[in-house]
Design a protein around this nucleic acid. Structure first.
Lengths: 66, 66
DNA sequence: AGGTATTCGGGTAATTGGGGTT
DNA sequence: CGTGTCCCAATTACCCGAATAC
């Protein structure tokens, strides 16, 4: 079936589980612009897996020490 | 220019993968008129690839109802 | 002529969004 | 200021059997 190339997306609950927080908190992060959110046609949010992993690993962060 | 060439079509599962939703959800979007659906002779739905990509990128396509 | 995966339908749980509060 | 919780309405996910696609 050859699916087109695109970004892997995560559901709010999946992101919440990774960060050990409530799904509502993930929604607040999206509202605050701290996390890129893609909306379904019904209004639900989906999050980029690569971005979430980077934030989890603390890769591209301009907050070095302290 | 702009000759009405044959548009590339996607299956329900392909669209569902792009949005990280269930194929049934894509069917609901088609029923709700949020997504253009083309029917096979057997009744199965196919979706326009360009339309799906625009919706994924958040490009404002048209606002029939608001 | 078969065989497997997908997509019809409907129906019922689970998740999510939004506002407001602690 | 950030987070967790409560409410309700809307959206989405999983269940089945039967038909279609390849």
């Amino acid at each position: 079936m050859s699916a087109p190339e695109s970004e892997a997306l995560l559901t709010p609950s999946e992101v919440a589980t990774l960060f050990r927080v409530d799904p509502k908190t993930v929604t607040r992060w999206a509202k605050a612009g701290k996390l890129t959110s893609i909306r379904t046609l019904g209004g639900h949010r989906r999050y980029r897996e690569t971005e979430v992993r980077e934030l989890l690993n603390g890769v591209p962060n301009q907050r070095p020490t302290d």
